[in-house]
């Protein structure tokens, strides 16, 4: 074992404590401020209330933005789930020239800075497609989000496929099942949880994304992060922004939590 003196152990504990404070105090300050009675953020908080939560619940722009976020996240997750699973099967089942490149291509949209991805799409839409008379509009946002969500589904499904026993599929084929029947009855049930877990992460990723969205959202359309961004550009932080931000934390954490549970449950079965 690693032997450290008492003093260095205490120093390590101090550093870890500091890291935890650094990571959680800002989020706590934000969440507490969503209950601030005053209409702008402050510290210490003079009076608490649910006023801004009630206001946010009925405020139309927030509802519209939330709806947009859900539509975009659901649409891009659907596309990414399909494409990501296909790539995972291709890379798992076959050895071919350029396999590494395919892997890199799937990762590239999240490896490159969001501003580059956003500007690339925006440039294609505005400099090339619109002059040619093709306005992609709302769907452009979903296309962009789907592109960087593929990797989430791919990673999860691929990791599971690698651990699956290929002889089960061979047995199924030997017993006379077709490709589709084998997939439906033998293969899919084995990677279903990984598939759902990946899709949930894709949803969370899209729901939270802002930089690519800035450049690909059609004028006048706000997702929840875009709405927050607009409010942030005003001089004082309105308390209602903290409400929406807290909401974003909750909505992103729920799918991640379920996704983790699914992955872990599967690991325990094995």
């Amino acid at each position: 074992m690693l032997r450290l003196s008492r003093a260095s152990k205490i120093a390590l504990i101090a550093i870890v404590t500091f890291i935890l404070i650094f990571m959680y105090v800002p989020l706590l300050v934000l969440i507490l401020n969503s209950f601030n009675k005053s209409n702008i953020s402050s510290w210490p908080i003079a009076a608490f209330s649910f006023d801004w939560w009630q206001f946010a619940a009925t405020y139309q722009p927030i509802r519209t933005a939330l709806l947009n976020s859900i539509i975009v996240a659901a649409g891009s997750t659907l596309i990414a789930a399909f494409l990501g699973t296909l790539v995972a099967f291709a890379l798992k089942g076959f050895d071919f020239f350029g396999k590494g490149t395919v892997n890199l291509l799937v990762v590239l949209p999240i490896a490159l800075p969001g501003v580059v991805t956003g500007v690339a799409f925006s440039n294609t839409y505005n400099t090339f497609l619109s002059p040619a008379g093709f306005n992609i509009g709302y769907f452009g946002m979903i296309v962009a989000h789907a592109t960087f969500c593929i990797v989430m589904v791919f990673n999860n499904v691929f990791a599971r496929l690698k651990r699956m026993n290929p002889s089960l599929q061979e047995a199924s084929a030997d017993l006379g099942a077709g490709l589709w029947q084998t997939f439906r009855l033998v293969t899919f049930p084995q990677f279903r949880t990984a598939f759902v877990a990946g899709a949930l992460l894709a949803f969370a990723l899209s729901f939270d994304e802002v930089v690519v969205t800035i450049f690909t959202a059609p004028p006048g359309v706000d997702t929840l992060p875009l709405w927050i961004l607009k409010e942030m550009s005003r001089p004082n932080q309105a308390s209602v922004v903290n409400v929406v931000a807290t909401l974003v934390i909750l909505i992103s954490l729920i799918p991640v939590y379920i996704s983790q549970r699914l992955s872990r449950a599967q690991d325990e079965v094995r």
Binding site: M23, Y24, P26, L27, V29, L30, N33, S41, W43, A204, D208, E209, V210, P225, I228, L229, M232, Q237, V241, N242, A245, T246, V248, I249, S252, L253, V256
Partner: peptide, 15 residues
């Protein structure tokens, strides 16, 4: 915190 939201964390640091 990785999943707490990108803008959310920027707002939190500002606060």
């Amino acid at each position: 915190p990785l999943w707490a939201g990108y803008l959310v964390k920027i707002i939190a640091m500002r606060l």
